[in-house]
């Protein structure tokens, strides 16, 4: 007698995946986003140098050589879009990862601790939430961008890193923090609400009755059950961050040369929209398509994981 004849059951994740497989919009979105990631992070390496200026070939129409034409400095638009996408997508993903880490731990602790600790922790979140997010990020960016050029030169002189690479890195790292540091607030509230309600569920009480310690209950029984809403919310946060990055870059407070991002490309394109609308439209389409797919993916995940739309 052993478990050999036991049939494997279907976990909630597997069920959700099957449900999602039936959602055509969500699957199409997944395909589009995967394609975007492939284009920006794999195909980009085989493209032309996005910063190669050819002043003799400004505003070239699409051709075999330049698939989507060239910009005001004669740079290849297609390869600029792919390289810009790298930064945009990376900012979205990393800032989300930062805010998920902070949000889940903060929310779980607050909800699990309960009582005064919870009340204080949540009052901090409420206060931070009332602070205009973009305002502080803009100021923070202004402060951090100065810091980043200092850091870059320090790294180059002391660690002998490649200068272009270091500049690119130190330019975007502050963005991750600026966005991630504030993006976790809503997630913390969602996770806390989940933990609060899970704490009252009988299976957690059964775990307490079985004598498990608090850490085990939190890690084994509570947090795994908060992952559904977390995944959904995180997916919907990525396009939000990509939008913020674009807005900041558009304001001149985000990504700077030699980096580029979709926000920068759109800003540059808007300058020539009357004569060369393609320079605005093509990056705009890439940008919106990515946001579109991520939002639909999030909606699909929400339906599949059966997460209520409530905010707290």
């Amino acid at each position: 007698m052993s478990a050999k004849n036991a049939q494997a059951g279907s976990s909630l994740w597997r069920d959700a995946w099957l449900r999602m497989g039936r959602n055509k919009a969500a699957m199409a979105s997944l395909a589009v986003f995967t394609l975007m990631v492939f284009l920006c992070f794999v195909l980009a390496w085989f493209c032309k140098d996005p910063n190669a200026v050819t002043l003799t070939n400004k505003f070239a129409p699409p051709s075999g050589d330049h698939w989507m034409g060239t910009d005001a400095l004669g740079r290849d638009l297609f390869s600029r879009i792919l390289y810009g996408g790298q930064i945009s997508i990376l900012v979205g993903l990393v800032a989300t990862a930062v805010s998920v880490c902070i949000g889940v731990s903060y929310g779980a602790l607050s909800g699990f601790a309960g009582g005064r600790i919870d009340a204080t922790m949540m009052r901090v979140v409420d206060t931070l939430l009332s602070i205009p997010f973009l305002v502080v990020v803009i100021v923070l960016q202004a402060v951090l961008s100065d810091w980043s050029s200092d850091t870059s030169s320090w790294i180059v002189t002391h660690w002998k890193w490649d200068k272009t690479f270091t500049d690119r890195l130190t330019n975007i790292v502050p963005l991750f923090f600026a966005l991630g540091l504030f993006g976790w607030l809503t997630l913390a509230r969602i996770v806390r609400a989940q933990v609060m309600s899970l704490k009252e569920r009988e299976f957690v009480e059964a775990a307490r009755a079985l004598g498990y310690n608090r850490f085990r209950i939190l890690v084994r029984h509570i947090i795994p059950n908060t992952l559904g809403p977390t995944v959904v919310y995180a997916t919907l946060t990525v396009p939000g961050f990509i939008m913020y990055e674009a807005t900041l870059s558009y304001l001149g407070l985000g990504v700077e040369a030699p980096n580029s991002s979709w926000g920068i490309l759109i800003k540059e394109g808007a300058n020539f929209m009357e004569t060369h609308p393609g320079l605005l439209l093509i990056p705009g389409i890439f940008f919106s398509l990515t946001l579109f797919s991520l939002n639909f993916l999030g909606d699909g995940l929400r339906d599949a994981l059966d997460v209520k739309a409530s905010k707290d």
Partner: peptide, 9 residues
């Protein structure tokens, strides 16, 4: 024992 690897739902 055939139920071992099933989930509660």
């Amino acid at each position: 024992s055939s139920h071992l690897r099933r989930y509660p739902h």
